[in-house]
Write a protein that binds this DNA or RNA. Sequence first.
DNA 1: CAATGCATGTTACTTGCGGTAACCCCGAGT
DNA 2: ACTCGGGGTTACCGCAAGTAACATGCATTG
Lengths: 218, 218
Amino acid sequence: MNTTQRTDQQTSADRRRRELLEAADRVVLRDGPHASMNAIAAEAGITKPILYRHFGDKGGLYAALAVRHTDALLASLRAALDAPAERRQRVESTLDTYLAAIEARPQVYRFLMHPAEGAGTPGDQSEQGFDVGKHSAPLLRRMGEELAQVIEERLDVGPGTQQLARVWGHGIVGMMHAAGDWWLGERPCPREELVRTLADLLWGRLAEAGDKAGGPGF
Amino acid sequence: MNTTQRTDQQTSADRRRRELLEAADRVVLRDGPHASMNAIAAEAGITKPILYRHFGDKGGLYAALAVRHTDALLASLRAALDAPAERRQRVESTLDTYLAAIEARPQVYRFLMHPAEGAGTPGDQSEQGFDVGKHSAPLLRRMGEELAQVIEERLDVGPGTQQLARVWGHGIVGMMHAAGDWWLGERPCPREELVRTLADLLWGRLAEAGDKAGGPGF
DNA sequence: CAATGCATGTTACTTGCGGTAACCCCGAGT
DNA sequence: ACTCGGGGTTACCGCAAGTAACATGCATTG
């Protein structure tokens, strides 16, 4: 019937799509985010137009790829965030999970952080609006929103919690990201130490610290 | 003589370079970071090869442009950080300076945050090493390092201050950046409120907050 | 069984951009 | 008069995104 037919097509198309994504993944992880559509098609054993039929344009393909990895990472972060333990313990665990992930697979990290690639299209009109605010990688956005959600659900900070939760969510995620990026580049200390230091920052040690003698203070 | 000759040439070349940068600035601020070399050359009233003679490649031009703006922004941040006031006041003032800057000229912001553009070069060898850790925009790197410097110079937190200062420097800058980016996109609240909320986060209000009734706590 | 779809795949093209080679022109110095 | 070097141009290469038009295999339908 029509339904089974459609279902068959659907599943077949979906399977194909998944295979293509696997191939794209391999290439991107091997060649970096600037892998060409030709290269990806070759890896998949086919040619360009098929990719375009499935994903519309390069942005579509990359978005699909990114969603896969983002979902996976977010799931493990959520697990760390949901574990039964003290708040400090949970924050550290979440930081550690994120850092362990980007440490274990830096290429995935590199790819996920790569911004939208919005250019390249000849008659590109979408760029004239200057998508300010959409600069950050979607992963960061999503992490920020998720964390905001968690904060808002579980934390009690009087009125204005919602706004505050979102600010903190994005802020904390940004802190984690920037520190992680720097750390990944220089590897100045073991992971646990970084985790502890960041947690200390969130726990207000900046405010408690004393001024160094002689200076104007900080 | 040789010296005056060299000086004349130098200054002339420098003046030209400055003019070209002005033109590039106009175009980039008008068309976004994806402005083509042709467009920039046209705006400057000349043609591509001259740009390449002066800046080597597109990366060179963009780097030169970025340095100009980055220097300017860093100077005003340093001023806010150096003002004579309480620590909290100074932190808020610095945050506000940054946010005011990106609010006033989002296009500059957008350009500065744009990553290195490392691709495009045909025989590109630098990409194979996967410059992980160099993902962040140079501006963020520099801000992180500067802040780390300031923290290390003025704050007293026992042994291991140096490491801690760098972690915090990059972390705080990342927080500021991410929150700013999100805020710029959604404008959910006035600037002062954002500043206060972020400062609260740094002041440990996250640790102090109570759990909401019913949940597993956070 | 032919005939019609229709998804799947290919070749070959266009457009646009980064980057370069080769040539051009004009004013200064000998 | 001549060449020499800085500033400039045209015309090109290579490459990657994206598309049009054509080919093929496998089901359903008259």
